[in-house]
Amino acid sequence: MSDSSSNEVDATDQEHREVGRGLLDEEMGPSGAMAHLYRGEIHRMRFWRERLDRTTNWAVIILAALLTWAFSSESNPHYVLLAGSTVLCVFMTIEARRYRGYDIWRSRMRTLQKNVFAYGLDPSQGLEDQDWRAKLSKDYREPRLKISRTEAIAHRLRRVYLPLVTIILGAWVLRITAFADVSWPASAMIGVIPGTVVTATVFLSYIALFAIALNRKTWHAETELMTEDLRNK
């Protein structure tokens, strides 16, 4: 390596060191531009996280209301539970769209954490990404959604909605078997639609949701605490 190339590498490394170290200097404090930038990204991420939680809360409330109503009387139709599962899927779609927005701010926050704060605390571990400045600059110039709609839906299914749909499916099965005037499959009938067709449609829909939830071939979301991460020592 030539002396000029070596000097360029040393200058770049020194530049990265100063960014990380500056945020930890006492005289810089909270007035630093990078610190304000990080604080702003945290605020935006928190705002979008609250929007996610709000949708989840409404889904849980609707689920509880449907279960209470469905089992309050044997005369109440079972298909209201199926309508409730459709409402849950609508909430899931809305929440997936919000999750894509949330991932924008979280990915920026994680970029700063990994390449500024982590590096400033321990430069010996090196940088997570040598081109993080250029990538973050491009993201500020041209903000883009970083994950697909399918990935967002799969994430929200795994975290929230697949368990909720499983609960409402189990309640529906219990409703058409143990709490019905007639035996299955007649108890699953909806109008002129035979009970076998209704049951097959319900279970095929659930299998489709389960398959989407397990699809992680295009996982681009920023890392966060996963179950597997918590097990690692």
Rank of each mutant, 00 (worst) to 15 (best):
D131G: 04
R97Y: 11
V160A: 10
L136I: 04
F203C: 14
A64E: 14
L112T: 09
V9K: 15
P77E: 01
Y38Q: 08
V182W: 01
S72I: 00
L24S: 04
R54G: 11
L81D: 02
I167Q: 12
A96T: 05
R156H: 01
D25P: 00
E8S: 09
D122I: 02
A171T: 02
T68P: 00
L204N: 12
E222P: 05
V19T: 02
T218C: 04
V9M: 09
H43P: 00
T177S: 11
Q125A: 11
P185W: 01
A188L: 03
I147K: 04
P123F: 04
F47I: 07
N232Y: 06
V90D: 13
G195T: 05
K135Q: 13
R17I: 02
E228G: 01
L37Q: 09
S72K: 08
E228T: 14
R231E: 14
R175D: 03
Y206N: 03
A213D: 08
A59I: 03
L88M: 12
D129S: 09
R54C: 09
H36P: 00
E222Y: 11
S73M: 03
S73F: 07
I176R: 03
I212T: 14
N7R: 10
S6W: 01
L63P: 00
L127C: 08
G191K: 11
I193N: 10
R144N: 07
T223D: 10
D3N: 03
L157R: 10
S75I: 00
S75M: 04
W172N: 02
A186E: 15
T199A: 15
P194L: 06
K138H: 08
D53W: 04
K146Q: 15
V9S: 09
M1H: 08
K217P: 02
D122L: 09
F210P: 00
V80G: 06
E128C: 07
D13S: 06
T93Y: 08
A11C: 02
Q113L: 12
D13G: 05
R108E: 13
S187Y: 04
V80R: 04
W219V: 10
A178V: 07
V165Q: 15
F117I: 12
L204H: 07
D122A: 12
R175I: 01
E228W: 11
L214T: 05
M45Y: 15
D10L: 11
V173A: 08
A35H: 11
R158W: 01
F47M: 13
V9L: 14
I104C: 10
L66T: 15
T56G: 08
G29T: 01
H36I: 10
I190R: 05
P77K: 02
Y140S: 00
I207W: 11
E228Y: 11
L81F: 03
S137C: 10
R21Y: 05
W48S: 08
